[in-house]
């Protein structure tokens, strides 16, 4: 995938991504509040296909998967971070949002254009002419992404196919 970078800092937690006060709202409305405590313009400015890059512990905190779901709804194609909260990491793949850890995110800056190859674990920063490696995504999670997330993969597993009556 190819996308433009949105750079965030360390410890972007689930309460910042999906604030509790709005959790009852339909997901599209919740998404409007995504990251508002760190950047009130985030939900309005992020574009479809953008790639979020962050520091350590992205998605730390609650198990609420809306934290990953709002990013997906806002069009975020992937998240690259130094490290992730463990539950967020699983949630993201379940919802079909691939995320990947990369140790040197310092070479990735806001508005850089990059290409990301999940399978090979490679990032090409086209703006800066640098290549970076990411941690490999385990096979079972690559399969989830290819299936489009856990729900379609369950449909296949349980022998339920879309379009069949």
């Amino acid at each position: 995938m190819i996308g433009r970078i949105w750079k965030l800092g360390d410890d972007i937690n689930t309460d910042i991504l999906a604030p509790g006060g709005y959790i009852k709202l339909p997901i599209e409305q919740l998404a409007a509040h995504c990251l508002e405590t760190v950047n009130p313009n985030f939900s309005k400015s992020i574009k479809k296909g953008d790639i979020v890059v962050a520091g350590k512990n992205f998605g730390v905190g609650s198990s609420r998967e809306q934290a990953a779901q709002v990013l997906k709804i806002l069009g975020v194609a992937s998240v690259i971070a130094t490290s992730f909260g463990g539950i967020f990491y699983r949630n993201a793949f379940n919802l079909g949002l691939p995320v990947v850890s990369c140790k040197n995110v310092d070479d990735l800056k806001s508005n850089d254009e990059i290409s990301l190859d999940l399978r090979l674990g490679k990032i090409k920063n086209m703006t800066r002419g640098i290549e970076l490696t990411t941690e490999p995504v385990p096979d079972n999670l690559m399969k989830l992404i290819e299936a489009g997330g856990l729900v379609p993969s369950l449909e296949a597993k349980l022998g339920i196919f879309k379009g069949e009556n």
Binding site: S63, R64, E65, I87, R90, N94, N140, L150, L154
Partner: peptide
Amino acid sequence: FGIGATDMLGVLVTGETWIK
């Protein structure tokens, strides 16, 4: 351990889950 809702959906319908 804690899991999100879609992960839980998987558990609720299959009775199993993966773990590293």
